[in-house]
Amino acid sequence: MDKWLQLFWGFFKVGILGYGGGPGSISLIQAISVNGYHWMDNTQFAEMLAIGNALPGPIATKLAASIGWQVGGVVGVISALAGVILPSLLLMLGLYQFMLANKSNPYVVGIIRGVKPIVIVLLLSIILDFIPGTFPKHRYILPLVFFIVGFIAIRGLKLSPVLVIVASMISGALFLR
């Protein structure tokens, strides 16, 4: 029973504090699941995140379901999903009218502008945590090539990220075993 409550409470905090969608939520989920409750280590989280990013849908719910399953089975999935979804549902229902009525208020605009840089900080923080597992000392050349080619494909050639993800998954299966 305790692990299900931990799953609910941990993901409830993610649901409450994960402003900005996936980018803001990923580092919170990592902090809770790796550093907080020690449900997994950084390498396991990075693998789960990589698989989750390759699948369609919101990353927070995919990670909640995966971690919930790993920690508590079916009831764990339900607990984690309820925790991550409930805050958003309640806030969306409660604040929709307020935001609609005050969308041009300079304080509301300022709040939104103030949060955006923090999302970037959270993304950079998680990237720095993943670098050692992604570019190990003994085999860093091929992952670095994947990174550079993927960056050029998405930013320079404007290829679909979906296409680049599928190509990197296939290439990784062939060359990074």
Rank of each mutant, 00 (worst) to 15 (best):
L7Q: 07
L7C: 13
L7V: 04
F8N: 07
W9I: 14
W9S: 09
W9H: 10
G10I: 01
F11M: 13
F11C: 05
F11Y: 15
F12E: 05
F12Y: 09
K13I: 11
V14N: 05
G15F: 04
G15L: 10
G18M: 07
Y19V: 13
Y19M: 15
Y19I: 14
G21Q: 09
G21I: 09
G22E: 05
P23A: 04
P23F: 04
P23Y: 13
P23G: 07
P23W: 01
P23I: 06
G24P: 12
S25D: 00
I26W: 01
I26M: 14
I26Q: 08
S27C: 05
L28M: 14
I29D: 06
Q30H: 15
A31N: 15
A31P: 00
I32E: 15
I32P: 03
S33M: 03
S33A: 14
S33G: 03
V34K: 14
N35P: 01
N35G: 04
G36N: 07
G36H: 11
Y37R: 10
Y37C: 05
Y37T: 02
H38V: 01
M40P: 02
D41M: 05
D41T: 08
D41R: 12
D41N: 15
D41A: 07
T43P: 00
T43K: 14
F45E: 01
F45A: 08
F45T: 06
F45G: 05
M48Q: 08
M48H: 05
M48I: 08
M48F: 08
M48N: 14
